[in-house]
Design a protein around this nucleic acid. Structure first.
Length: 230
DNA sequence: AACGGTAGCAACCGCGTTAGT
DNA sequence: AACTAACGCGGTTGCTACCGT
């Protein structure tokens, strides 16, 4: 029962190129932040939230468009194993990719179960036949339609990656620590079922190597605060 | 060629957290 | 300390393009 005129009518739906230009120009001159003021100052009839999202997911510099590389895909898989649905955290490890990107990619390419999308995919068993079906479908269009080859890479724990303990367990879903073995003496984690990929850009861990030695520097940095904890 | 079904992306919504007053 | 506004995140939905029949 909002009285007319009480609150401005914000535009919804897809952004037009000219709106993008306005927003981009505005942010470039005024900087990020204070999104609620952006619509007023810029003349865009979009709510601040919408502006922020558009900037963050699309207009920001260094945003990567296009399909995920095999490296990125592997990274997503590994990180999801660790962190669950913490898309922002996962995206933070993949330069140029946004949480929305990662989330969408996971839901469409990697997560066969696709729980949020209740389309009639018929069988709930999701066996190998499912893969056949998918192969028949649009996945063929994708240049990188190969299934993930990495299904067992997990290092550290979600707490380590975040540098804190999760306040809310249910948020972010299941974090599988089952992959991780910890050496009581060396106090290092080991992968239980590692898969070694010949790829320098990623941080896969060899069976006999303590993961900290291989973890990327950013993660290392983040872990430091936690490392003294135990 | 037309139609229906589906995948994929973009954007919205609701809620929790944080910062400012 | 309490309240409010802004921000950030994850879940969900809408729309469009594409594919198979």
């Amino acid at each position: 029962m909002e009285s007319e005129g009480a609150k401005p009518e914000f535009k919804k739906g897809l952004w037009k190129p000219e709106e993008d230009l306005i927003l981009k120009a505005h942010v470039e001159t005024h900087g990020e932040g204070n999104w609620s003021a952006v619509s007023k100052r810029s003349g865009l009839m979009r709510c601040g939230k919408s502006c922020r999202l558009r900037w963050k997911n699309y207009l920001r510099p260094n945003i990567k468009r296009g399909g995920m590389s095999q490296e990125e895909e592997d990274m997503i898989i590994r990180m999801h194993k660790l962190l669950g649905n913490r898309w922002a955290l996962i995206a933070g490890r993949i330069p140029g990719r946004t949480d929305n990107d990662v989330k969408n990619y996971w839901n469409t390419h990697l997560n066969n179960r696709s729980p949020s999308r209740k389309r009639k995919t018929i069988d709930s068993e999701l066996d190998q036949n499912d893969e056949e079906k998918q192969t028949k479908s649009k996945r063929l269009r994708s240049p990188s339609n190969s299934q993930p080859t990495c299904n067992a890479i997990a290092v550290g724990s979600a707490e380590e990656l975040e540098g804190k303990k999760p306040e809310n367990e249910e948020r972010g879903g299941a974090v599988s620590d089952a992959w991780i073995q910890r050496d009581a003496q060396s106090m290092n984690y080991y992968i239980e079922s590692p898969m070694v990929l010949d790829n320098n850009a990623t941080t896969f861990v060899f069976e006999d190597e303590p993961f900290l030695d291989y973890w990327d520097s950013f993660a290392m940095f983040e872990s430091l605060g936690f490392a003294g904890d135990w």
